[in-house]
Design a protein around this nucleic acid. Structure first.
Lengths: 208, 208, 208, 208
DNA sequence: TATGAATGAGAATTCATTCAT
DNA sequence: GATGAATGAATTCTCATTCAT
């Protein structure tokens, strides 16, 4: 668990690289550009990170390091199942918003079969799913969730938030005068609302 | 709208290229490999598609060509709002499943800001969103949806389905003995169920 | 056995590369220089030879291709053991002289443990040794060779000729006015003479 | 002639470097690896040896330092020409065997024209040759050598021994069950025997 | 149209060497 | 003397694209 401490140069490299990998993907990220953008000599990059693929791995590992911890911690603090669900969504939303590289890289990685994802990163996503499972199994009197496979709400949360956040710059390009897109807060509220409605037992919702 | 008819060679190229773009992204797709995998001489590829970026555009254009049409058509056939919503989800799910390159490329494109998406492809997604908006505004007596920004359910549908479908190979790698992952049908059913519950007016769902 | 026919470009590359490998060794040979000296575009080199190490292998394979055949053929034409030995030395001397890259590369390769020698090249040397063994076992009435391990004369021939030929430029740098170095013919004659004297049975030579 | 005394670190560096130069040649030897294999910090290597080419020179100078002295001394102790020749071969064989880097580097250097050999190292080889010349001119009554250019026997000795010794690891890879390769002692005996037979005046050997 | 060969502009990586401490 | 970090100049190799037939 001992996180190795990187010196200033290595940190600058990793941060810039993470941004670039998010923007352009692995193959679209050019080491020369990384050198320019990070202001670090190219040989130094190799000194600290051996090669591009290792650098990528380090970036992902760090990027996904604390996600599950943060989300799980937040859900544990919430008293009821409904509030746990809410905490789950809100915490993930906040993390994804504060670290926009994360949803972008996650989407690319999932799209390519996760072949380049370090195990640690994959485990984080697994732990998130397990956590959601547990929440949905909460037998609270007031918020007994439907017996549903957790994967569905899991992807509804992760998927919709990733799409919402990463598509933001794209949507801003097409500024329509009419009803504006929801803010992240609004989006999150609506997401939570729909999920809670749909996941509550004895829900009077429509049967398809 | 006149769809140019491609000959056998061009078709082989475009199909293989689409697969490869989905697997490896634009930058990760190498023309030499395309030549090998498609069994078509490299110079021929250039003869038929000018250059890589044009080939990419052609692939995307074709990939996203009928999506909105198909979904809209299906929703129009459904009599009630709830069934329209259901048709929306099921049609998109079917299309994405039958053309697995589509969700993969969509995710990559969104993640990178959609810079390389041809306008036509973007329009398809716009039309899908508009269609969903319309559905949610349906003033049916029996299925009056909440006044909610359509973007949220839109991304819940598209996002969760894309994540579910593209992550399938990855999840199969981590075969857990316990409760299996839902099939696409199950996933779709649950997705629809949650959405309908959450989007129905006067829903007694929990307030956050 | 089918020798692939290289086109003009590939031949130019291989010939120049062989020269350069002989002069500077594997690591001392720079692909950019090869491109300049051969007048061939760098990418073409890679097109024809994949990478440096494969190019090296091709050079060696070709360089050592016919050596054993030529030597063996020459020895077979000679009627007596003594003349076979003479043919062995003279043919190898001629080959090494006409293809100066061969002794140079052979020396480097042996010095580094032959790790980079393609099997075919090694086999040629093996065949040469076997051939010499056979010659030394000749039971001619007039030239019955001593029962001696063939490796010794083998290396006396190969080793001395390689040293003589590759050191020629070096020795010419130190032009001494006194007795000139022997020509290749003289060197070969003396080599043959010493060997024959030393290898003849019932030789009245000095016991050590 | 004052040999500077190296401290432990410098010795470790030079010994490791000599090994590596023998194994991989000048260009194939990488300073980073030297640092790892010698366990000495890279900057320290430069502190002690200025740069790679100087380090190489130091290695060669030391490697070839006492060769001629040792051989000459041994030959001077031998009373007759035949025994001097024997001493020459045996001493060189012992030196080359005890310092396997020497024959390897010698072969590489000769193969590349000796461009990187420090003068002192070249002089050693010159002195060896001169010494052999002198031996062959010995006018002993009992061992009058043929008037032959000394270069031939010189290279027969140096060349065959270098080839024999450096090819040992390679030959061991091809363990044949039949007649084993001669040991160094056997090889040396046979070498001496052939040379003496071939170099004795009035030798009744075969005329070619 | 089809194809083997050619090519220039990159892009990843290496390596000897130096610097600051 | 020793050491981790930094650096510039190579060096190997790749890749989209074009050419000649």
């Amino acid at each position: 668990m001992a996180r190795q401490t990187l010196n200033v140069t290595a940190l600058k490299i990793r941060n810039t690289a993470t941004e670039m990998f998010a923007e352009n993907g692995y193959d679209g990220t050019i080491m020369d550009e990384l050198m320019v953008r990070s202001g670090v000599n190219k040989a130094s990059i190799y000194y600290h990170f051996q090669d591009k693929s290792n650098l990528y791995e380090q970036c992902l590992t760090h990027l996904f390091a604390n996600i599950a911890d943060a989300v799980i911690e937040a859900t544990e603090l919430a008293p009821t199942g409904a509030l746990k669900l809410q905490a789950f969504v809100q915490t993930f939303a906040k993390l994804a918003h504060d670290t926009p590289a994360m949803p972008a890289i996650l989407m690319r990685e999932i799209a390519s079969g996760g072949h380049h994802m370090p195990v640690t990163a994959r485990q984080q996503m697994q732990r998130l799913l397990s956590n959601l499972k547990m929440i949905l199994n909460t037998k609270d009197l007031d918020q007994p969730f439907e017996s549903i496979n957790a994967l569905t709400p899991h992807f509804m949360i992760i998927g919709s938030l990733c799409f919402y956040l990463t598509s933001q710059p794209m949507r801003e390009g097409i500024k329509t005068t009419e009803k504006l897109d929801p803010t992240l807060e609004e989006f999150t509220q609506q997401l939570i609302h729909i999920l809670q409605s749909g996941l509550v037992k004895n829900n009077e919702g429509v049967q398809s």
